[in-house]
């Protein structure tokens, strides 16, 4: 029986699709609002292979990637600097926590004024949100480096700078990856929301919104699933990279 364990997740997927069929057949939901799964998957297939959905998918991937990269490039070094000095971190902790708790969507109008209607606004709001999450995690990873390990480096004669590179940075890597995973998820959320509203003409958010406006329900569901697959895929990608490079994590 144990051999079958890896296939257990399939049960949930099959169950969901079965429920969906039942809901359609029993007319539990207005058939206009809930198309057949087959229609949806068909819309997804044609959309992704040469249709608009595929193009919009790539736009969203592009924006999310850009936002995450910008966020990481800014937040990781800054997080290391802040984490290396606990007093420095404590002095900006409130500001970071405050903006981390502020819904990034509330920042859209401000960024619109700053960057105008277009990609720059979408990417920079997403980068802003992701950067705070990454910064927070990196700084905590650095601050929580095992004291014994730092002492071990010190008794072996490592300088402070050497200890930072050889020990502290590596110690903070698992937490950094937590930050990156949360950051990329948040960036995707913000990008998709931004694509729905601010004068957008493309991207998954726009696809969902437009399909809904035109009552093309199979297309709307297809776009939702595409966004879900993208979020899941990005998370999985970071997990795989983490497992490869941070092999000691959790051990």
């Amino acid at each position: 029986m144990k051999r079958l364990d890896p296939y257990l997740p399939i049960i949930g997927v099959v169950g969901l699709i079965a429920l969906w069929y039942i809901a359609v057949w029993l007319k539990l939901v207005d058939p206009v609002l809930l198309p057949l799964p087959t229609d949806t998957f068909h819309a997804m297939w044609t959309g992704m292979t040469g249709g608009r959905l595929g193009r919009d998918f790539l736009y969203t991937v592009e924006r999310t990637t850009a936002a995450t990269v910008i966020a990481a490039v800014i937040a990781i070094p800054l997080g290391i600097v802040l984490g290396a000095s606990e007093r420095l971190y404590r002095s900006v902790e409130f500001v970071i926590d405050f903006f981390r708790s502020t819904p990034a969507s509330a920042m859209f109008p401000l960024f619109l004024v700053l960057f105008g209607v277009g990609d720059r606004t979408k990417i920079s709001v997403a980068a802003f949100g992701a950067a705070l999450v990454i910064l927070f995690n990196v700084a905590y990873g650095v601050m929580n480096a095992r004291k014994t390990r730092l002492l071990a480096a010190k008794v072996m004669g490592a300088s402070r700078l050497r200890t930072l590179f050889d020990v502290t940075l590596l110690e903070s890597l698992p937490q950094t990856f937590v930050g990156l995973r949360n950051g990329v998820s948040l960036a995707l959320v913000i990008v998709v929301v931004a694509e729905m509203f601010i004068g957008s003409t493309d991207g998954l958010g726009n696809r969902v919104f437009e399909a809904q406006q035109l009552f093309q329900m199979p297309d709307m569901y297809a776009a939702i699933f595409a966004a879900g697959a993208l979020g899941y895929g990005l998370n999985l990608l970071f997990l795989l990279v983490e497992r490869r490079f941070v092999h000691w994590s959790g051990k």
Binding site: R146, T148, R149, L151, A152, V155, M156, G157, A158, R162, D166, V167, L170, L173, V246, H247, W248, K251
Partner: peptide
């Protein structure tokens, strides 16, 4: 210096050999 808590004193990102040679690397 040998710590009580070997789990937290060794560097898990280095292989055992690299752990042992680390102080020589510092030299």
């Amino acid at each position: 210096y040998v710590f009580q808590n070997y789990r937290e004193a060794l560097f898990p990102w280095l292989r055992s050999f690299e752990n042992i040679e680390y102080p020589l690397k510092l030299m």
